[in-house]
Design a protein around this nucleic acid. Sequence first.
DNA 1: GATGAATGAGTATTCATTCAT
DNA 2: AATGAATGAATACTCATTCAT
Lengths: 187, 187, 187, 187
Amino acid sequence: MKDKITEQSIRLFEKKGFTETSIQDIVEGLGVTKGTFYYYFSSKEELLMDIHLGYINQLLDTQGEILNELMSCKQKLFEMVYMLIRNIKIQGPAAKIFFREMKNLSDERLSIIVPKRDQFRMNIENLLIEGIEKGEFRADLNAHIVTFGILGTANWSYQWFNPNGESTDREVAEIFVKMILEGIQVN
Amino acid sequence: MKDKITEQSIRLFEKKGFTETSIQDIVEGLGVTKGTFYYYFSSKEELLMDIHLGYINQLLDTQGEILNELMSCKQKLFEMVYMLIRNIKIQGPAAKIFFREMKNLSDERLSIIVPKRDQFRMNIENLLIEGIEKGEFRADLNAHIVTFGILGTANWSYQWFNPNGESTDREVAEIFVKMILEGIQVN
Amino acid sequence: MKDKITEQSIRLFEKKGFTETSIQDIVEGLGVTKGTFYYYFSSKEELLMDIHLGYINQLLDTQGEILNELMSCKQKLFEMVYMLIRNIKIQGPAAKIFFREMKNLSDERLSIIVPKRDQFRMNIENLLIEGIEKGEFRADLNAHIVTFGILGTANWSYQWFNPNGESTDREVAEIFVKMILEGIQVN
Amino acid sequence: MKDKITEQSIRLFEKKGFTETSIQDIVEGLGVTKGTFYYYFSSKEELLMDIHLGYINQLLDTQGEILNELMSCKQKLFEMVYMLIRNIKIQGPAAKIFFREMKNLSDERLSIIVPKRDQFRMNIENLLIEGIEKGEFRADLNAHIVTFGILGTANWSYQWFNPNGESTDREVAEIFVKMILEGIQVN
DNA sequence: GATGAATGAGTATTCATTCAT
DNA sequence: AATGAATGAATACTCATTCAT
């Protein structure tokens, strides 16, 4: 039941927004009552926190696995971008909630989420730095800013990418990484 | 007064969110009453629509000016990315509202905003296609997907870019466009 | 309207209790809506505080007037007991609320009420001490404890005294003060 | 377990009030669940009734013992006042609940409690009448009203008397009965 | 142009109680 | 004897909106 409530609420929060979704909306489709909701969650914000934690933890886990593999930095970069876009099919709604509704968490809860989000970004930045040292990436790269650029490219997909559309997740990842690595201009 | 209300509400909508901000919150800081608000706006949603229109129209105008200039496609691409990031200082809050609160508009109003947003994107996509034809960009480019990549890089800046921080808007635009044009790998 | 709400709520709080009375209960009998209540009071507790302040301030004022009159201490003591019992007709319900519902005030609000309540008691204690010095009251009196005894006698009236019953307020006050001054035993 | 629940609830009802205390609050500190509560009590009101009965029955019993002893009426009066104040240490919280929360009992249950409460008072009133006949108390005494005065003095102690404070229960009872019997004025 | 009073529908949350196990 | 899941009705409070003045 707790999982059913979480899934249902992710669907609704993504479509209508956290504040715009009432507990009534959530339980209605599940055929239970508001009391049931409060048996499993002590507040609406706790539910939001659960969603946030589920998303960022899963992301950090997968990222950790990629970092531990035996691959070039270029290859790892591809895997990370691919992971983010592949994720949309299963985590897309959660991702939108993660970026859009974070302001609805209390400061106390934010102090748990924000460091995790920053850690995810720092892992990419460090990958870039390692790639520079290994001669895979340009030496004059501003790793800090470029990381934001790469993250923007990948995260923005949550705004438009349709897993059932023309291009597959792998194709999109390949196009993006090719752009990031080789650029788009004719040399 | 209408402008004062709009400015104040942009500040508040960005910080707390559209639904989380009450008319009371808006008028309180201006020293007027709710009645005054309803003298200038017929509903809270109309105010949100005004903000959306103000943002996207200004963007389309500036984009149109860039397209009319005598420049290479590469140069125009840079100008567009630079515009978006430069914009954060003055339009940053409005931009966040634009992307985050669009769901609070009625279908009728969305049918006015969405085509404008798509037009902005299509103008970039067409610029890429023109650049391919002119031999400035790679012939094998997927202009559609790459446009989303470029937009993601630029738009994501609203999430992190601090106009008073270490890097200037121009520096960030240069780093991003260099990445997009030349890529980050060592050839 | 504010006064009407206050009067109505005093009636209901006394009969059913503060927590047991809903805002709905209060506004229903007045033919207005809950919104109206919150136009005049920012919370149910604020209303309770208003009732507390109204009661204790009026009591302190009247007590002050008695203390300023040219009378013996005995006479002043009688006036105070008489005031408390006479008060039941107009302030009885408020008095019950004052003693019974104080626990529903926040610590912050209690820190305003409690000193006033203590001041009222101390004014009686000081009157006893003055009476001892002037030779009106026994020298061996424990003024502190006796004050609690007198207050108990008078305040307890709120539990049983019926202004429309057999004995008048003046008669009850006279019986009580006679008991307090002369005692009930045969010498 | 039933006794543990009763003790715990007396503690909580006195501190926070009957309505303000939830079944959850009561069972939480005992390490059991709400179901357990409903195994021993059929409703929250039944528990409140148990507390009321326990208090008033014990009081009537003790009062009966005093009345049966071989003593003067004056002496019996002292014993009763002393009993009430001595009681605060063990029955204080229950007494507060008795006087404050009676309104939460149904009419049916009230019809059992109220006669017992009145009986307790009538026993005092009759003691006064007996004392008048025996020449111990003034012949012009209004026994009815004076009884309320004595009860007020004693019962009010529940509002302020601290068993661990400066004065002992016996000292307070002696001061009170001295006031009631001899009065406070200098003859 | 602006206000102040009022509304009514909605929101998160609480809680006594039930009941199958 | 005890539990855990579920209910449903109630509660304080919010807020966009209206409108006579």
